[in-house]
Nucleic acid binder design. Structure first.
Lengths: 202, 202
DNA sequence: ATATAGTATATCGTATACGATTTTTAAAAT
DNA sequence: ATTTTAAAAATCGTATACGATATACTATAT
């Protein structure tokens, strides 16, 4: 089944990719004219894509001033981390972890440990979490988590170097899941996400 | 501080209102030309508003076929109810219930009990839940809940008449909150949302 | 009577135009 | 030299135009 993919969708995905590669950073304005030149499309699908990302709160707009990626903000960080912790816990509680998933998690954790720059490490960490929650068959939850993680990505770039217990916790989660100890895994997962809140000062 | 409100935002809110009043129903197509005539604006801000609602998954689009409110679907219902139960529980656990909030809840419960048509009752029920979670200061969570409840509204129109224990459960929640028994309140709240899943057959 | 093909109409997604607003730059006033 | 004002340039949000696609209708073949 071949379906046409609208420019709007393509633009939205391209912009999300630029965030993940660090090409677009927190606090940056998004220039319609500039994006239109880069992508060689009119501003119409770009506006549609950006208004979608606004709805996800990944970006902000103000009338007559255009679109911007929000600056980092500790209050919002707390909100985001708390939500992700809660929704991932829900996902884990509603998942079954087969040997192949456990294997994928272990492999992914190795990628995290061998990544040698901040952007790669954050992206690999997010992929680890995506694998962890991938067995939860709730499309709405998955979309919400995706959006939240896009927003959290910018914070992780700031905070992740502050946290030395990440690898140990991931391995602990994997062990618990391997042994069917879901509740213990959930407890460490929440710790994994929420302990960063201890670093929020400002 | 006066700020301009874009047509896009106005159109989006008007469409959401039409859903809440039952003027727009599950399964209905949204005609750009028709909305443009009604609201006396061009299709541009309408498309921007609709693509935003698509991002919230409140509506769906398919290339070259326009926008539509999704039909009711039991798998999606399960997803939505599970998410709302979880996020409202999180909200309650992170809230403090003053006397004035308890008073508002009681007053709202009276409105539910005296409402005399399905749409009013569902809307008043959703307002009850909004009050219940209003003390949770997490804007992202509130926006997510808002979107989820817009989608659940269509299901509640179908399911709510099947459920006779609603009022009793609300009063129980209020009592528990009044006595500071948060865990008990959360348990009844989850029951309140998740018991409808027993009626899902199809 | 039904299925297929062709035509007309309606609608969608994108491009372009344009008035309104914001930002930047230059000139005038202090 | 600094501040204020005015003008120019850039950008935004919306309206309109238009080619592409889908839908509805009609004619033809089986």
């Amino acid at each position: 089944m071949i379906t046409k993919i609208t420019y709007r969708n393509q633009v939205r995905e391209l912009i999300l990719d630029k965030m993940k590669t660090g090409e677009l950073k927190a606090g940056e304005s998004l220039s319609l004219a500039s994006i239109a030149r880069d992508l060689e499309v009119s501003v119409t699908p770009i506006r549609e894509a950006l208004t979608q990302l606004e709805q996800s709160r990944i970006i902000k707009s103000a009338p007559n001033r255009g679109f911007i990626i929000p600056e980092l903000n500790n209050v919002i960080a707390k909100d985001l981390y708390q939500l992700v912790a809660t929704l991932e816990s829900l996902a884990i509680e509603n998942s079954v972890y087969s040997k192949s998933i456990i294997k994928k998690l272990k492999k992914q954790q190795e990628k995290i440990e061998t990544s040698n720059n901040a952007i790669d490490r954050v992206n690999e960490d997010i992929i680890f979490h995506n694998i962890l929650t991938s067995q939860y068959k709730n499309e709405t939850a998955q979309q919400i988590l995706l959006d939240l993680k896009t927003r959290i990505f910018f914070y992780e770039l700031e905070f992740m170097s502050l946290d030395n217990s990440l690898n140990q916790q991931h391995n602990q989660i994997i062990n618990y899941l391997e042994n069917g100890q879901i509740k213990d895994a959930v407890k460490i997962l929440k710790l994994n996400w929420l302990q960063v809140l201890d670093f929020l000062k400002l």
